[in-house]
Simulated assay, not measured.
Amino acid sequence: MKIIGLLGGMSWESSSEYYRIINQTVNRKLGGHHSAKSVMYSVDFEEIKKLQHNNRWDEATKLMVEGAQYIEKGGADFLVICTNTMHKMASEIQQHISIPILHIADATARKIKDQGISRIGLLGTKFTMEEDFYKGRLIANFNLDVNIPSKKERPLLTGLQHENKFVAIF
């Protein structure tokens, strides 16, 4: 069994979902008391959040690279970033580690394509919806028609606002 590297903490709730789903899937496929072999490094999301919202992505990338390097040293065979938004720096992280990153947009696109769907709506953080690191990958690599709600429409979709930013529920 390969060792899964989980780069988490953005937020810890998201990371716990990744951990839970991965382990439930392994158990369902292998039965008994099987669970995934994994190594997790969790960043402090408060630091990341401040860097994101102050457009200090280089510093956030440095923290993510350090976490990925700890995971690699811990024996992981590949890396999963436990959040959509931080895939923004996936290519930079990949340059500093020798294990592959499983990109969430690729896994998402394959599931979408498997269902015969070609036109989708994308909900997420402002960064995920507005920047090209996710949406652009879906379009360029998988030929998907990707739509995002306008800034005016976003609060209407869930009715949730948190610190003046849109919160999507999946």
Rank of each mutant, 00 (worst) to 15 (best):
S11I: 04
D44L: 01
Y18T: 05
V39K: 14
W57M: 13
F45R: 01
L160M: 10
A68M: 06
Q95F: 02
T61H: 04
H53W: 14
L7T: 05
N55I: 05
S38G: 13
Q161D: 14
Y134G: 03
I71L: 03
M1Y: 10
Y18C: 04
K49T: 09
L138Y: 03
Y18V: 01
P149F: 06
G5V: 05
L156E: 12
C82P: 00
F133W: 09
I99N: 06
A140H: 15
P100R: 10
E59I: 12
C82K: 00
K49H: 12
D77I: 02
D58Q: 13
V26Q: 10
A76Q: 06
K88Y: 10
L79D: 05
M40F: 02
F166M: 10
M40S: 15
N54G: 13
L123N: 01
Y41H: 13
M1K: 12
D44K: 02
I139M: 15
Y19Q: 04
E92P: 03
M40C: 14
I3S: 12
A60Q: 11
W57E: 10
I112N: 00
F170D: 11
L63C: 08
E47Y: 02
D58F: 06
E46Q: 05
T108E: 08
E59G: 08
A68F: 03
L123Q: 01
S91A: 11
L138W: 05
G8F: 06
T85V: 03
S42G: 03
A60H: 09
D44N: 08
A105E: 14
L123K: 01
E72V: 01
H33F: 15
N141M: 15
E66Q: 12
L122D: 02
N23L: 09
Q95M: 12
T25W: 08
I112V: 02
I148H: 05
P155H: 11
H53L: 14
Y18L: 02
T158R: 04
I148F: 02
